[in-house]
C-alpha cells in the first residue's frame, strides 16, 4: 500500500541507475592492455622458473669440479690414462717390470753429491 507521501518520494533506484549509466564502459583497448600486462608479468615469472631445470645433477657436478674447463682437463687425462694402459711406452714397461718382477736394478741418485752444483 502506498500513501500520498510515498508517491511524492523519489524513486532512488532511478537516480542510482542514471548515475551508473553516466559512467562509460571501459574500452576494449583498456581490457587488451590490462591482459597484455598480465601476460608480460607472467612471462617475467616464467624465466626464473626455468632455472631449476638447469640446476639438476649436471649443474651440481659442474659446480663441484670447477665448470667446463675442469671437465675438459679430466677428459684429456682420462684418454691419456687409457692410452698408457693399452699401449704403454717402453720406459713405463721397464719401470713396471722392475717394480713388479724386480728384473732391473734400482739406482739411488744423489744429484748433490760431491758439491757438484752447490755454488
Amino acid at each position: 500500500m502506498t500513501t500520498e507521501k510515498d508517491d511524492k518520494m523519489p524513486d532512488l533506484e532511478a537516480y542510482f541507475e542514471a548515475a551508473r549509466d553516466a559512467v562509460p564502459d571501459p574500452s576494449d583497448a583498456l581490457m587488451a592492455r590490462i591482459m597484455a600486462d598480465a601476460v608480460a608479468v607472467a612471462d617475467g615469472w616464467a624465466e626464473p622458473a626455468e632455472a631449476p631445470a638447469r640446476n639438476g645433477f649436471l649443474r651440481g657436478f659442474l659446480d663441484a669440479v670447477g665448470g667446463w674447463p675442469a671437465v675438459s682437463g679430466m677428459v684429456t687425462a682420462g684418454f691419456v690414462g687409457l692410452f698408457v694402459g693399452i699401449s704403454p711406452p717402453a720406459l713405463v714397461s721397464e719401470l713396471t717390470d722392475s717394480i713388479l718382477y724386480g728384473t732391473s736394478d734400482a739406482y739411488l741418485v744423489d744429484p748433490g753429491d760431491g758439491f757438484g752444483f752447490a755454488f
Binding site: V23, D25, P26, M31, A38, A46
Partner: peptide, 18 residues
Amino acid sequence: GDRVAAKVLTLRMTPRVF
C-alpha cells in the same frame, strides 16, 4: 601461470574499478 584466470579477473574487476 593460468592466464585464463587473469582474463576472468580482468573482466570481473575492470568495469567496477573503472
